[in-house]
């Protein structure tokens, strides 16, 4: 009876050293042939998040709102900056950022936490980080509910440009996936990568224009003295993403929403696809040693 989807004949030679193009092809085939497994893993992830908590999946809605509240209090009272409709201004960044950090933190342990399974069954390990990253998309979709609620308070900023949010999310997904795959593989060999990632992420958030707009940087003395910093700040993927999300959700402090900067989004998408190919090759190269190291 032919029940398995794998190729029945398996010839493994130690001298076999596949090239980058073949590894990418294999990686694609891994995901396509095991899409059902990815789906089950995503469903399991969602179910587990809901279990054991009083509010269940409602946390997906509540969490970004509470985070927004903290920053609104911090910035308006402590720093006393005045930006019109500030809650919506930062919510447009909190939502994608929460998606990114959740995916990255989960993906870091995605392979290492399945050590028992990896030592028992042969399956494409690439499905693990892909599943956690995809589960993050579902969380992001849940986050659109509080966004819709918040928009009701700022009804004059509601616009058809909101429909472009999924398009920007696609760019972010490709970038997040590339990042997650790389970290998932690296964490097998360096278990403190999770700690490193957490601190880097916190720093990254404050260096990205989430609580402030990119234009604010022009007023900062350090940036005025070193124009190179402005170039670096503009090249930050999350500068491009936050500015794009903000443009279609919030607009600008004094103007309504509009079209995002397509050029920088397109460049980011291209770079992310290249990054994804690179991290897939790295992952596939390291994959054979996972069972030994874990």
């Amino acid at each position: 009876m032919s029940v398995t989807s794998e190729v029945p004949a398996a010839f493994r030679n130690a001298a076999d050293d596949p090239g980058a193009a073949r590894l990418i092809r294999e990686g694609l085939a891994d995901i396509v042939s095991r899409r059902r497994l990815v789906r089950y893993l995503v469903q399991a992830d969602m179910r587990k998040r809901g279990a054991d908590t009083i509010l269940g999946n409602f946390w997906w809605v509540l969490d970004p709102l509470l985070q927004m509240l903290v920053y609104v209090i911090f910035v308006t009272i402590v720093v006393s900056r005045k930006t019109p409709d500030y809650p919506l201004f930062i919510f447009a960044a909190i939502l994608p950022w929460k998606w990114f950090t959740t995916s990255v933190v989960d993906a870091t342990s995605a392979v290492a936490s399945q050590d028992r399974l990896i030592k028992q069954i042969q399956f494409p390990k690439l499905v693990l980080p892909v599943a956690t990253t995809t589960a993050g998309v579902v969380g992001f979709a849940f986050g659109l509910i509080p966004l819709a609620g918040l928009m009701l308070f700022y009804a004059d900023r509601i616009s058809p440009f909101l429909l472009l949010v999924p398009l920007i999310a696609v760019v972010q997904y490709v970038f997040t996936l590339a990042f997650s795959i790389l970290l998932a593989a690296g964490n097998v060999f360096f278990r403190d990568l999770g700690n490193v990632a957490r601190h880097v992420l916190r720093l990254w958030w404050f260096l990205s224009p989430g609580l402030y707009s990119l234009a604010v940087l022009d007023e900062v003395h350090v940036v005025q003295a070193n124009p190179i910093l402005k170039v670096i700040a503009n090249a930050n993927p999350f500068a491009i993403l936050f500015e794009a999300y903000r443009k279609v959700i919030y607009g600008a402090p004094t103007s309504p929403p509009g079209l995002p900067d397509w050029t920088s989004l397109a460049v980011l998408l291209l770079v992310s696809v290249g990054f994804l190919a690179l991290s897939t090759v790295v992952f596939k190269r390291l994959e054979p040693s996972f069972a030994k190291v874990l």
Binding site: A10, F11, R12, N13, A15, Q120, I121, P288
Partner: peptide
């Protein structure tokens, strides 16, 4: 589950 470091395996 583990790739051989040398030699070959045919299953």
């Amino acid at each position: 589950i583990i790739r051989p470091s040398e030699g070959a395996v045919d299953v």
